[in-house]
């Protein structure tokens, strides 16, 4: 469904992605792991067309989207839930959600989807008239995901949804992502929390300083010695 073929990007002279290839099948949940600054967010920025490619090709549903704009990406159904949540702090919860549906014209369906988000996240219904900046971190992350879903994504890109959240809430959010996947949404998940990400991923890539150094099925990588040592903090037992 989504193919990054040999992509290279940089910020000025700093190389962010170096010849990266990543494939996401329809209906799959794919994770990208890596340390800070490994290029995970740059990957998503490139897919959302916020970052220009220097080389390589982006294919979505067989179409070349290498030269498309961020708005076109949204129209194509490529929806990103950005790192740090980036909710609109002074808009109400409901206004935030309707902004997610900015590119849609089917008013009735948007109303239905609002109801749907309220049933996914009842807390957002209780707080629908509240200004978004008054929500807790976990609630803001739920709002950011719900806002993304309001666009009816064909593929949902999530950038570090666990960042800065309590472990209990992280678990809630990951089990929600799993439900979404089972309901048929294609997901590309970028995470530092490697253990959680690998548990729910069908397939995963490990990025190190802009290069893919390892890839495989989620369960495979969970057993991989290098991943265990570098990303899960588990020392090899004798």
């Amino acid at each position: 469904m989504l193919k990054l073929n040999n992509i290279t990007c940089s910020y000025g002279k700093v190389l962010a992605l170096d010849d990266v290839s990543i494939h996401v099948e329809k209906g799959a949940l794919v994770s990208i792991l890596g340390a800070n600054g490994a290029g995970k967010s740059s990957c998503l920025k490139a897919i959302s067309r916020l970052l220009k490619l220097q080389a390589g090709q982006l294919l979505f549903q067989g179409n070349d989207i290498t030269k498309s704009t961020p708005e076109q990406a949204v129209h194509n159904g490529i929806i990103q839930v950005p790192e740090g949540r980036m909710i609109f702090p002074d808009l109400t919860v409901t206004e935030n959600l309707t902004m997610g549906a900015y590119c849609r014209k089917d008013k009735k369906e948007i109303q239905n989807d609002l109801e749907k988000m309220n049933s996914y996240f009842p807390i957002l219904k209780d707080r629908r008239r509240q200004i978004a900046s008054t929500l807790s971190g976990g609630e803001q992350q739920m709002l950011a995901i719900a806002r993304g879903l309001m666009a009816r994504p064909k593929i949902l890109l999530l950038d570090e949804p666990s960042l800065g959240l309590a472990p209990v809430i992280v678990e809630d959010i990951f089990s929600f992502l799993l439900e979404l996947k089972q309901a048929g949404t294609t997901i590309l998940l970028v995470e530092q929390n490697a253990f959680m990400a690998l548990q729910i991923a069908d397939y995963a890539y490990v990025l190190e300083t802009g290069k893919v150094t390892l890839e495989g099925q989620g369960k495979e990588l969970l057993e991989n010695e290098r991943v265990r040592e570098s990303y899960l903090g588990i020392k090899k037992s004798k």
Binding site: S48, L50, P70, E71, V74, H75, I79, Q80, P82, M86, I87, F88, P89, D90, L91, E95, T98, M99, G100, Y102, C103, R147, A151
Partner: peptide, 22 residues
């Protein structure tokens, strides 16, 4: 919608771009 979009843009340009706001 457009008015709310304008307010959204003033609060977070990147997020507004990711909503497909031109």
């Amino acid at each position: 919608k457009v008015g709310t979009g304008l307010r959204a843009l003033t609060q977070n340009k990147t997020a507004a771009t990711l909503m497909g706001i031109k």
